[in-house]
């Protein structure tokens, strides 16, 4: 007893934790709280980029620590909504990585022509720029009317922006360059009407698109597809969650279906590597062969 009274009162005094270790505990508690209270599971997101976004949110909320954000988020649903936006919105552009679309035209379109009906799942579509890009490509190839594109995202706010088909006019110059390099065959400005600072895309382009909410971390497969696109979404997940989503995409693809992922993403560190064949050297387009 005497010895205990003279020694440190709590065990951590023996080895003070680093700020880094404490932050990891705070982060786990925040994600646990959000998952249990709101049902959004960020526990398997890639920690480095997640932390960066959380710290950006802490600064925006004018708070000082992850614990302070936890308190705010659990007591104020409006704060949770702001956090959800900052953790889930992925910025993208039309015809991002033009080469991907050029090779899609060259290698995938001829296969799609042989199908009477084509189902495409665009997973994690964010504000829709790449969905409209694919619609334009399929339209130019004369395939659009037999396609159905299911564009999904975890976040309802970005989906309603995607549904509007309205984008910033200032981005059109960059998108036009991308479009041309992606093998576009017309004048890009044919596809939109400029009004004030906005570009309103031809509503015809969304006739075959269904935008709906789907959470890759918790929801299951909902159809069989000829093409699954999931570009620069998996990078935000840890290996465990990536594996889950790869399973989901594999199960959602018919035999000889095509999977498209981001330029710096790879099948190399997944258990599905053997199930796909690369369609073009260096391009992230894979055909399911097993």
């Amino acid at each position: 007893m005497l010895q205990q009274a003279a020694g440190p009162a709590v065990a951590w005094m023996l080895r003070p934790m680093t700020q880094h270790e404490r932050e990891d505990i705070e982060l786990d508690l925040l994600l646990e709280g959000i998952s249990r209270y709101y049902g959004y599971d960020f526990r398997h997101y890639a920690p480095a980029s997640l932390k960066r976004r959380i710290w950006a949110a802490i600064r925006t909320e004018q708070l000082a620590s992850i614990s302070a954000l936890q308190e705010q988020v659990l007591h104020d649903p409006a704060c949770m909504e702001r956090l959800l936006l900052s953790l889930t919105v992925n910025v993208t552009t039309m015809f991002r990585d033009p080469e991907f679309y050029r090779i899609f035209r060259e290698k995938v379109v001829p296969r799609l022509r042989t199908y009477p009906f084509i189902r495409i799942w665009h997973a994690g579509c964010s504000t829709g720029e790449e969905v409209y890009s694919m619609a334009i490509l399929l339209h130019e190839e004369g395939l659009y009317d037999r396609c159905r594109i299911y564009a999904t995202d975890i976040n309802e706010r970005v989906l309603s922006k995607a549904r509007s088909g309205i984008f910033d006019l200032s981005t059109m110059q960059e998108y036009t360059q991308n479009y041309l390099r992606a093998g576009g065959t017309r004048s890009f400005s044919e596809y939109y009407t400029a009004a004030y600072d906005h570009a309103l895309f031809n509503p015809r382009l969304k006739e075959q698109i269904t935008f709906s909410q789907h959470n890759l971390a918790t929801d299951g497969s909902f159809n069989e597809f000829n093409v699954v696109l999931c570009r620069n979404v998996l990078i935000y997940f840890n290996k465990q969650l990536q594996e889950r989503v790869h399973n989901l995409m594999y199960e959602s693809l018919g035999m000889f279906g095509v999977l498209g992922i981001g330029r710096a993403e790879s099948m190399r560190f997944t258990s599905h590597e053997q199930h796909y064949k690369e369609l073009h050297p260096g391009e992230r387009l894979y055909q399911r062969v097993v």
Binding site: A46, A48, S49, R52, R53, N90, N232, I235, A264, E265
Partner: peptide, 12 residues
Amino acid sequence: LVERDHFALSVD
């Protein structure tokens, strides 16, 4: 980004 034993990417 660096995550101890591997790299991670973002398009933020």
